[in-house]
Design a protein around this nucleic acid. Structure first.
Lengths: 210, 210
DNA sequence: TATTTTCCGTTGCAAAAGCAACACATTATG
DNA sequence: CATAATGTGTTGCTTTTGCAACGGAAAATA
């Protein structure tokens, strides 16, 4: 399976060969896009980190997804049923490619190699996204804050092949990602330490169980 | 966009032309597949309804996804990090096609039209799945049982283009789908009725707000 | 470097959700 | 049809979570 498509080289090679896309750069905390009026927009994060964030009517903030290099996002993945604000915020300097989804499978007027290869790679890229979303659902369906934390730590442990890893979020953001109250999460984190499940040194978590 | 691919006709036309897939029929409550040792399995539900169900160590049951006609599922969408049981249960009589994902983009040795068309349609089918999963995440990140219920009802209302609709779940299953305790959900349903948000007649919900 | 802003860690109290148990209704099944 | 199995509706009690508020640490910024 070709999971290692290097989009970046791709971009370097072909960035001038096709007119039907846009490449933009964003600074930290800038809004990359919103999911309101950009029908069929598809974006690829070439570099940096960004979050898809929702603010609900009670003022709760939720980090719906966390994107890193090669992540796909954009309004094409959403059927807007919500009246909540959905926006993608750059968490660091970001480089993003914008497409219209319809364009991808129509041959570019230049018949450009960029679009051709992209169209071939897209199923695998979207498939990766589906597995990410499924992992996210598994986390969110855990019944308690404790299980969400342990589940998330276990995930990071699997990814890093280590029982010790840095959190990619601030604790405030982690709470918004797990969809729980921050202070309640802090309390649970303390209990996990007291119960000998984890150690925490700065932003680093060390798993002690199993 | 070709969202209306009629897979069923597809099947009728080509079900004998290709050896690299399997078609099976399941009765209610039968296990269609598990997500443990079927690497790269991709399934399409041709007919019927089925649920992807997880049982955790505390005995909680979660309906991770609910599948109806033309839904995609299978182990290819999961990177197994969990030690929970994940299985697909038929909720009615089901007809299911099984593929190996690798096969789809390799030309079938017969160079069969079935596989060719499937490969062309797959991006759109997977895209549909992504939008489903995103809606699911939006539901699950709601902070209260009340908001989950209202969010789900609003979704059904949008789908049916009506403020009155049948629940596609039993209430027990709905609780497992929203990942909340059943009795707590029943209590909240009662409060929603008392507060004039909904009416409930048998399995039918009528939205009264807005 | 001084100062503002964000983040961390904690707590008391209130609200929400989970658990357990039960009676009754409805639906399968022998 | 009788009986078993499953689903609905309810409630008292316990546990978990959320909310609000605060002081101090750390980081960003002027």
């Amino acid at each position: 399976m070709n999971t290692n498509l290097d989009i970046e080289n791709f971009i370097l090679d072909f960035s001038n060969s096709c007119q039907k896309k846009q490449k933009k750069v964003f600074g930290k905390n800038e809004v990359v896009t919103t999911y309101i009026k950009n029908r069929n927009q598809l974006c690829i994060l070439i570099d940096g980190h960004a979050d898809l964030v929702r603010y609900d009517l009670n003022g709760n903030r939720t980090i719906v997804e966390h994107f890193s290099k090669n992540a796909l996002f954009g309004e094409v993945f959403y059927t807007i049923t919500t009246n909540n604000e959905l926006l993608v915020e750059a968490k660091s300097n970001c480089t993003v490619l914008f497409f219209i989804y319809d364009d991808i499978f129509q041959k570019c007027r230049n018949n450009c190699k960029f679009h051709q290869t992209l169209a071939e790679s897209l199923p695998q890229l979207i498939l990766n996204k589906v597995t990410d979303l499924n992992m996210r659902i598994e986390l969110l369906t855990k019944r308690s804050t404790r299980d969400k934390l342990l589940g998330y730590f276990s995930l990071l442990s699997t990814r890093t092949l280590s029982t010790s890893f840095e959190l990619p979020f601030s604790l405030t953001d982690l709470a918004d990602y797990l969809s729980v109250d921050r202070s309640a999460m802090m309390r649970e984190l303390k209990l996990l330490k007291e119960d000998g499940f984890i150690e925490k040194v700065g932003n680093r978590i060390i798993l002690l169980y199993k």
